[in-house]
């Protein structure tokens, strides 16, 4: 059961990461274009994403069980990416955010801008935790247990011995 759940969250983590990244990319690029700001200034928003992408790639390629099979880490990743996606969704589609109607950009930049700092904090937190989980004790190999011969093979020998003594 735990394995199934873990597998599910592991897959969901990547899906949500993509959706969170796409929503952030869309909003931030659109925001910077409308405000006629230099897009290089938006790099600081995407650095934590880049860092996580690299770490996830290392986890996948290195088959690091200590990270990939850590259910708590996977659930937290899902929650963080879901929160980012939800905030992006609200900034674009929530009609009750009235600045969205006032500015007529179709996106409530004011709302999303407030969320950028917590978003960065959460993403950097995930990166730090990922690096921490990469260092782990190597599993010691269990001592080899001598394999006993099958009873059937021993039995004829015993028989033969018994017969010899007779």
């Amino acid at each position: 059961m735990k394995k199934i759940l873990n597998g599910m969250f592991c897959v969901l983590k990547y899906v949500l990461l993509i959706s969170a990244f796409v929503s952030t990319l869309y909003i931030v690029i659109y925001m910077f274009q409308r405000l006629e700001k230099d897009l290089t200034q938006a790099a600081s928003v995407f650095i934590p994403y880049l860092l996580l992408f690299i770490l996830f790639c290392i986890n996948l390629v290195g088959r690091q069980k200590s990270v990939n099979q850590n259910i708590f880490y996977n659930i937290t990743c899902c929650l963080v990416f879901a929160t980012i996606t939800y905030c992006g969704y609200r900034a674009i589609f929530d009609e009750n955010l009235l600045l969205r109607a006032k500015t007529k950009y179709g996106i409530d930049f004011n709302f999303y801008n407030d969320f950028i700092a917590p978003m960065k904090t959460m993403l950097y937190g995930l990166s730090i935790a990922n690096i921490c989980f990469m260092f782990h004790k190597k599993e010691e190999k269990a001592p080899e247990i001598p394999v006993e011969e099958p009873v059937e093979q021993i039995a004829p020998r015993k028989k033969r011995k018994a017969e010899g003594t007779k």
Binding site: F72, Y73, I75, T76, L79, V80, A82, T83, Y86, C87, R90, F115, P118, T121, M122, G125, L126, I128, A129, I131, C132, F133, F135, H136
Partner: peptide, 22 residues
Amino acid sequence: KIIGYTVVGLVFAYSAFYFILN
């Protein structure tokens, strides 16, 4: 490992707070 779990715990609490608050 303990630091890793502590950071994940904090991030979990922070994101859960933001998710519910939203």
